[in-house]
């Protein structure tokens, strides 16, 4: 597989993952390009890997977490920005619930949010998440468990659930 063929096949999924991770169109493009540039540099190794897409996904996740580490948490968006998802088509309660969930997710540590994205968006197993993030499976499970508990325990989320 050539690099161009890989990008043609995996570029869009990578970009979507980057967008869900960052919530920002420009950062997502930059993140996807950064991961692909890393892959291009080591293409022979990537192409020879058992699962090149998983290899590059790991590069993307690492780049994302590295960027997040170097940024102030105060930069984390707490409100929808203009490039975020289009909620306008959803009816009232669903909008409120999703917005609430989005704000709660924004309050999580980057690593915890990343675990949730990989598990509930990318549908990766804990083993695959541990490989993508370079941590143990038990760490993935613990992080996911704590993050979910944090989301569930939030009073405002309980209100949203009661109103469903």
């Amino acid at each position: 597989m050539t690099f161009d063929e890989f990008v043609a096949e995996q570029g869009q999924p990578l970009l979507r993952l980057a967008f869900v991770l960052t919530g920002d169109r420009h950062l997502a493009e930059d993140l996807a390009q950064t991961a692909l540039a890393d892959a291009y540099r080591h293409w022979r190794k990537v192409a020879a890997a058992r699962a090149p897409d998983a290899y590059v996904r790991r590069m993307l996740v690492n780049a994302h977490l590295s960027w997040r580490r170097r940024r102030s948490t105060t930069e984390r968006p707490t409100e929808l920005d203009e490039t975020a998802g289009d909620w306008a088509a959803d009816p009232g309660e669903a909008i409120a619930a999703r917005e609430q969930m989005r704000l709660l997710l924004a309050s999580l540590a980057p690593r915890a949010r990343t675990v949730l994205v990989l598990r509930y968006y990318a549908d990766l197993t804990d083993a695959a998440i541990s490989e993508a993030m370079g941590v143990s499976e038990s760490s993935v499970r613990a992080t996911a468990s704590r993050a979910l508990a944090s989301l569930r325990d939030t009073a405002t989320l309980a209100d949203v659930k009661e109103n469903r």
Partner: peptide
Amino acid sequence: LRDLFASEASAAPQAVGLTDGT
């Protein structure tokens, strides 16, 4: 979470020019 992430992903930009940008 699944619904939220799926909805967010649907608003992702198109991978046009991704190779060139890379």
